[in-house]
Simulated assay, not measured.
Amino acid sequence: MSRSVSLAVNGRTDIGQIREENEDAITWFAHPDQPFAYVVVADGMGGYSGGALASRIAIQTISLCFSQLITPTFLACTPEQQKLMIQSAVRSGIHKANLSIIEAKAENPDFSHMGTTVVLSVVWQDQLTVAHVGDSRAYHWSLKGLTQLTRDHSVVQEMIDAGTLTEEEARTSDVRNHITRALGVQEDVEPDLKTYRLTESALLMLCSDGLTEYFDNAELQHVLATHRPALECCYRLIDDANHSGGRDNISVGMLEVTVGPNQSVAPVISVPSGQGEDTTVRRNQPRFGE
């Protein structure tokens, strides 16, 4: 049975302190009548305005797929069918965005090196779907702590996995911007995609690496746990990243999920640090809040 869910969403992108152009793009939406919302963040690359074009193509193409999702047919389906339809829309949006970027590259030689990361979260009732390509990230925060929902497709992540680099060293590594998967590079791109069931009120945060360059998971958790109103965390985090140097473009999207009539995301003064990558509360059962 689906739980009563209300959703609110906000986002911001910023050029930072060094770059001459903002190659990030972000979009978000909350349905006025249905418990449906999403956030999409893309971090472009390629110079000559190519990165900005690639990220813009990504968010526009994916948003178009999502805009066609909530139909009478969808609403009449079972929760399991709806989950599969959302996953199909996510994969279709990413696939179409990838091909559109490749087509744009073919039309203009100046864009031959462009591409983009993408990370997205879609909430329908108590279902959360997360997908990503590249090193832009999604996080889930509740009163139980912070969970990083995505694992970077990057050279430094592979080095961390191999034990040759720590997460702290990765943030200053010379190859920290080298990603191993992106839109616009090959005709076939496979996103990492997972669906969860939301069982308690939470914050979902999506961001480009212009933010995570400066914050580890414990620092992100502290801001999400203590800063209110919750949706204004996106402004606070971007301002903090700029004060720390702002070497890259910075984008943050926030989706606030309130589950049940009497539950809300309340501030906490002290919570345990959440590092780690585990996306489940029980092994092999991707649910939150049990």
Rank of each mutant, 00 (worst) to 15 (best):
Q275V: 08
K144S: 15
R19P: 05
T13S: 15
A89N: 08
V133H: 01
E277Q: 13
T116A: 10
E103P: 01
A25C: 15
A182W: 09
E158A: 13
Q148V: 12
I15M: 15
T280L: 07
Q127D: 02
N10P: 02
L255F: 01
H243A: 15
L143P: 05
S67C: 08
I269A: 14
S121L: 09
Q263A: 05
A170T: 13
S201T: 06
I238K: 10
T13Q: 15
P35E: 03
T195D: 06
F36L: 01
R283T: 12
A225R: 03
T147G: 01
M159R: 12
P35T: 03
S112A: 13
T129M: 04
G245R: 04
P79A: 08
V123K: 01
T78I: 08
G246P: 02
R283H: 14
E169G: 06
N262T: 02
T78H: 13
Y214S: 09
D110C: 05
T73I: 11
Q81L: 14
H178R: 14
E190F: 12
V257Y: 03
G163A: 07
P267H: 12
V259N: 00
T73C: 10
A89E: 06
N242H: 07
V175C: 09
G253Q: 05
T172A: 07
S208G: 04
T117M: 11
A182C: 12
S201M: 04
A76P: 09
A230N: 04
R236T: 05
K194N: 10
D24P: 02
H243L: 14
A89I: 07
T78P: 11
P286D: 03
V265F: 03
M159E: 14
G44P: 07
D248Q: 13
E23D: 14
G184V: 05
P32A: 14
A225D: 08
P72G: 11
S4A: 10
H95W: 14
